[in-house]
Design a binder for these strands. Sequence first.
RNA 1: GCGGGAGUCGCCCAGCCUGGUCAAAGGCGCAGGGCUUAGGACCCUGUCUCUAAGGAGUUCGUGGGUUCAAAUCCCACCUCCCGCACCA
Length: 954
Amino acid sequence: MTINWNGIETKWRNKWIESKDFETNPNDKPKKFITVAYPYPNSPQHIGHGRTYTLADVHARFYRMKGYNVLFPMGFHYTGTPVLGMAKRIGAGEKEILDGLRNIYHVPEDAIKTFVEPVKIADYFHEEIKSGMIEMGYSIDWRREFTTIVPGYQKFIEWQITTLKEKGRIIQGSHPVGWCPVDQNPVSQHDTMGDVEPKIDDKNFLIKFKFGNFIFPITTLRPETIFGITNLWVNPNTIYKKVTVDDEMWIVSEQCAKKIEFFEKQVKVIGEISGSEIIGKYATNHDGREIPVLPADFVEPSMGTGLVMSVPAHAPKDYQALMDLRIKNHELASKIEPIPIIVTEGYGSIPAKDICEKLGVSDQSDEKLEEATKALYLKEFTDGKLNDKCGQFSNEKVQFGRDKIRAWLQENNFLEKFPVLENAPVRCRCGAECVVKILNNQWFLNYGDESWKELARNCFDEMNILPNNIKTEFVEVIGWLHERACARQQGLGTKLPWDKDWIVESLSDSVIYMAYYTISRFVNDGTVTPENLTKELFDYVLLDKGDASLVASTSKLSVDTVNLLKKEFQYFYPVDSRHSGRDLVQNHLSFFVLNHVAIFPKEHWPQEIVVNGSVMMDGAKMSKSMGNIIPLRTAIKDHGADPIRLAIISSAELLQDADFNMESVSGIQNKLESLLEDCNAKVSDIGNLEAEDRWILSKTQSMISQVTEAIEKMRLREALHDILFTFESDLSWYAKRIEAKGRSDISGILHKINSARVAMLSPFAPHIAEEMWQKLGYNELVSKSSWPEYSKENIDATAIQSEEFLKSTIEDISNILKVTKITPKKIVLYVNSDSMKTKVYRKILEIMVGGQNNMGVVMKELIADPETSDAKKMPDFVQKVIKDLYSESETIKAMKLESESFDEKEFLAKELTSIGKKEFGVDITVYSENDSDIYDPKGKARHARPFKPAILIE
RNA sequence: GCGGGAGUCGCCCAGCCUGGUCAAAGGCGCAGGGCUUAGGACCCUGUCUCUAAGGAGUUCGUGGGUUCAAAUCCCACCUCCCGCACCA
């Protein structure tokens, strides 16, 4: 039988939609509010995106069956800049992006035509993604859907950001950004050629030297080396500019003069001076020392200020340049000696000299100098210590001393920040080379605030984080988080209410929006309009502040409506579970918590975060350039939604990267097909239970308990595994037993088992589970049925334990046959009947179930008890029993202890003969050790131990 | 550099928190058998080494340690992956 997946899926999806099953309103039942980070619609979703949503959907469906009133909503995050960049590129007719849209995403031509308008791109992919979600069978309440640029949402964001400001969480300050001087805009990855992220190095500094009335500003990553300066380097072939910078006069390269204009400085060129004119003169450093200026060709005017300070003891390039001059008998250079200021193990007094000699550097143009610089820099940073040349900082480790020296210089106006683009040159898509610009009126969320962090920590302490081992990462993130820009100058979104030049940044308008799901339903159905959503209304509904009638009048709503909104929010909040990918741990998920604790009272803080890993495709990372992206909708069409859901879930535990491949999809399809075939309507009632019936029914019970617990901890792979495979091996053992006995009266039992199994499968594979449920003869939907209840009373300890006994006996026989390669003519079993052995066995069992495993201790306890003191006569037996019991689970041991009067001989004689005959093709005879008519030609019987019959094979 | 994570029997991947149920689940692959006109699918058996009695030996990145007992706990080391911000 081949399943028409899409056909089945459409059929059941329509039933769900018809019965409005997933539309959730407050009622008397306990609620669960499960949310996933909404998507940014600038491309169709692929299988990787499907993972988070699928996990959340399983979660939601599970709790629905457990009897909760589950709200699982969805929105679309339009806020941000990527679609702006896309629209621009599409407008410019860029081939690369157009090809991508046509060939990878299969966007129709007439849709592409509209894409010059950014919102149209978002609108198109919004619908595309939504369709995919519906086709995947996600149980979403679509009545609450919104995008982040609709007026109602914007009202909500205005309220959020105003509230944060009122609570003192927002501050203003300066911040460096990558900037396009032509477009007059900040640039991010999406705005640059080759999609490079402009990386800003703000550990770069400028140190000021006096040169008459002028200042020589010199950039360095190592401010501590000022103590070891011997000279400055200037390129004799460069014409430098004399410029006024605010109220100082600087000498810098032309390129540098342009850069510092973007640092909020008033810059004016007032003259020129050539490098050769400066050479040979002296500048003054911070402590008044005279520093000579020497020539060096390696000085590039485009780097830093176009001037370089020389620390030959610690900078290989400086050392080599100095040596090169000495070789040419440069008079001044010959007098200069390196000044060592850092002591590092493994290096002599002049480390730069050591490393240059070690690597065999020939001259200052030698490429090996890069390597030397890097190696020495790192080594001195991690291991080096400042020496007594460094005054008050001597004896400090470099990595700590550097910051102190930096701060000290800054205080005394010898140092300023000089952020640079680490990966320069970065080109804007317009072609211009990007610069670093310092924005001085940027708005920040003050995540660095210790009191705020403390609140977040409190929240994390009480929150359930799944999987638990990612909790430490959250704690770390909260630790190092500091001010974060919350506004930007372009892109879609909501304007800052108090400063309309800025738009609320996209990671800041997506942190508490789950609250808006409780309101959006009423906006969407017209109960309220965006104009009604006043600050007073939000305060009342979300924070329980103010008075209903007052709020009603300012928001122009009835008191009833106002209270309806409030009731809805108070019913559904807090968020019970937030699902997201692990890449969002360091930003969205942490901000989600920080913003909740800043705005809401404790009872509305999030309860749980579930983090999942990403999806790989055949072991490789999915990427557009690799061409291995499979759009989710294509995959659904080709393989069916359920197989894809299961393939995603079954390939890895929560936090692991899941590997998606077609083999696993088809494996799952086959599995589901055979499961469907196994589902038949009940044709008989359950009659008298035999041993194997009691066993399989007990197994079903423990399976239910196991699966339920696994899902509660979101160990979905494990749960699915149990449903699909562990169950299978139990059932096949059962089938074997049934067949050996020639029974045909088990359809009632199988029906019962399959019902539980299908019900548990339904959150994972909801469509096909409905089909199975129908085949099982049910008229209602499985998604509306109750989760199978686990009851301990239905577990028959004796049945489980005795079936294990049967299995292990058969295993022993097969083992012997395998090793001896005998073809058996006769199999004889001898069960223990010695009452002393039984007593000792039970006593050992008792001791070991109590947790004691030590042979010596067990023996002592045995001897101490007069009932079992004879154990000292049979140490071999005791040792073997302990060993037997080591390899048994705690539950089996406990069960053995529970089932007191178990007759091994009767059981084996009754149950083993049928299956034994089938397995080994001969009759099996069972004797008791002390039977008078015993057949025991080889004297095997005395080896019998409780639950371990002796075996004779002829 | 800072922070997080991983290394398991051909491959993928469980187990580690809570030590004994672990020669270590499951899937894939491979080998043999069944089914089939054939192929596919499906089912059974095997898949570290040795073993003519249900057993033994050597394994979980490397080296130490704790323990009656270590894949699991502790220490050190090696290797690899990911994130580091104004970007969704």
